[in-house]
Amino acid sequence: MSQFQSVAIGQEFTQTRRVYLEKDGQVISPFHDIPLFANGEKTVLNMIVEIPRWSNAKMEIATNEKYNPIKQDVKKGNVRFVRNCFPFNGYIWNYGAFPQTWEDPTVTHPETHARGDNDPVDVCEIGSEIGYTGQVKQVKVLGVMALLDEGETDWKILAIDVRDPMASKLNDIDDVERHLPGLVKATREWFKIYKMPDGKPANEFAFGGECKNKAFATQVIHETHEAWERLIQGVIPAKADTHTIEVTNVNVENSPYKSSKPFHKSELGQYTQINPNDSAVKGRDDAWYYVSARL
């Protein structure tokens, strides 16, 4: 059982929906209060699931709201859903973010030649389990792509749940190509085309769309973690012309934004505890099978 629990308020698929994370009844920030690293060696990382695999609602950490709940993105006054671009059905991985990372919009990356997008680093978790919004997964890093989204660097880390049956076989991006053939290509294609049904052009990538290896991805994560540390410690202002970040937290030492007043989940009003087993169906299998037919 995870030490972190998810509680939801508001009706699903509306602008009032919020998923908060709590620990021991106290509301915490999934952006700031959950540690990035889950072990002393810093080889296992915590990941916040925003969007479960095979779903379409564009959920995201609300970086500008107190305690940073997860909400559905809004465009032109309506909650946002991604389209099903053949042959894909919604998101093809558990999609989320690494806590305690920040893509600094004031800094231009020397290799992508673009500034950060002002968000935590995105994660595509490629394991077989379907996650749930607000779930905290322990993952290991495998590689990274660099999407150039409207002129900003938008890192996409590929990772796998350490409990997944395939985790022992996947230790770098070449292992993904070997054991899950076509997944890296499908990931690149998904990010390239997913906005096109809404009339937008195909997305572009740094590095010609190449998926960089684990070492490169790890460097990106450490750089963005250091940027977050500068932000949460007040070295970089939380509000500036280039960005606005809500930095209230409950357990970050040496942070000037650490709250001295606990916020209990009962103060949220009417809430629902998210039970990850509510939708479990005996015999259902949502995994992908990487097989080839010999003709």
Rank of each mutant, 00 (worst) to 15 (best):
A57Q: 11
D278G: 10
A97Y: 12
K71P: 08
I51H: 00
N68D: 06
L147F: 11
G134E: 03
Y91G: 03
G182E: 08
L295W: 15
I34Y: 01
P52D: 02
Y194S: 00
P30V: 02
E204P: 11
Q26G: 09
W288I: 14
S292L: 14
L45D: 02
I9V: 08
Q5L: 14
P276G: 06
P201I: 10
D122P: 06
I126V: 13
D285P: 06
Y289I: 15
H113E: 12
Y91L: 10
L45N: 05
G96R: 09
K200P: 00
W228K: 05
A215S: 10
E125G: 00
H225C: 04
V107C: 08
T16V: 09
G116A: 05
C211R: 08
K214H: 09
P256F: 14
P105F: 01
E12K: 15
A240L: 08
V121R: 06
D24P: 10
K137S: 08
A159Q: 06
P256S: 13
Y91I: 05
E253T: 13
F4W: 09
C85Y: 15
E60Q: 07
C211V: 12
R294D: 15
G151E: 06
D117W: 02
V79L: 10
R83D: 13
A57I: 08
T14P: 06
G134R: 00
D278P: 10
D73Q: 07
G77A: 06
N213I: 04
Y194F: 11
F13T: 09
F263N: 09
